[in-house]
Computed example of a mutant assay.
Amino acid sequence: MFVRIVKMSFHEENIPAFLENFESVKEKIRSAPGNRFLELYQDKSNKSIFFTYSYWETEDDLENYRKSELFTAVWSFTKKLFNDKPEAWSVDKLVSLE
């Protein structure tokens, strides 16, 4: 299992549209084959910056999601709202304490 972290920065006036869209698609993203976890975070000091954390069983699962109609629709909508280039990382989780 690995974690995908995506940092997105939005024009302030576009934040409500992003949040509304995320609310409408979050269960579909979470239900994608291989997805085990999904969270959305908002930066405390810069409210225009958001992060998604998603856990995937395999890299192929993430790639299959990224090639899906769902991702295409979500990304096409979301990228129009950005005020900066998004950043993404795929990382291996080494330690988790709960």
Rank of each mutant, 00 (worst) to 15 (best):
F2H: 10
R4L: 09
R4W: 04
R4A: 11
R4S: 10
V6F: 04
M8V: 12
M8Q: 09
M8D: 02
S9F: 04
E12D: 10
E13I: 11
E13Y: 11
E13K: 15
E13D: 15
N14Q: 14
I15T: 06
I15N: 14
P16C: 02
P16K: 02
A17F: 12
A17D: 14
F18E: 04
F18P: 03
F18C: 05
L19I: 05
E20H: 04
E20Q: 08
F22W: 02
E23T: 12
E23Q: 13
S24H: 07
V25Q: 03
V25T: 04
K26I: 11
E27A: 14
K28T: 07
I29C: 03
I29L: 08
I29K: 08
R30T: 13
R30F: 09
S31I: 09
S31L: 10
A32G: 07
A32S: 15
A32P: 06
A32W: 05
P33Y: 11
P33G: 05
P33I: 03
G34S: 03
G34W: 04
N35F: 07
N35A: 11
N35L: 06
R36S: 04
R36M: 08
F37D: 09
F37G: 11
F37Q: 11
L40K: 05
Y41I: 11
Q42A: 05
D43M: 00
D43F: 00
D43P: 00
D43I: 00
K44G: 13
S45Y: 06
N46C: 10
K47A: 13
S48F: 08
F50C: 08
F50N: 09
F51D: 07
T52R: 00
T52V: 00
Y53F: 10
Y53M: 11
S54Q: 04
S54Y: 08
S54M: 04
S54R: 05
Y55A: 10
Y55W: 11
W56L: 00
E57S: 13
T58D: 05
T58K: 15
E59Q: 15
E59R: 07
E59F: 05
E59D: 15
D61R: 07
D61N: 12
L62K: 07
L62E: 09
E63F: 11
E63Q: 14
E63R: 15
N64L: 13
Y65M: 14
R66S: 08
R66W: 02
K67E: 01
E69A: 12
L70W: 01
L70K: 00
L70F: 01
T72C: 01
T72W: 00
A73W: 08
A73G: 08
A73C: 07
V74I: 11
W75G: 01
W75S: 03
S76C: 04
S76D: 13
S76W: 01
F77L: 05
F77Y: 10
T78G: 01
T78P: 01
T78E: 03
T78I: 09
K79F: 00
K79S: 02
K79Q: 03
K80Y: 02
L81G: 06
N83V: 05
N83C: 10
D84M: 12
K85F: 10
K85V: 12
P86L: 06
P86N: 07
E87Q: 12
E87A: 13
W89K: 12
V91T: 14
V91Q: 12
V91K: 13
D92V: 12
K93E: 15
K93V: 12
K93P: 01
L94V: 14
V95Y: 07
S96D: 10
L97M: 10
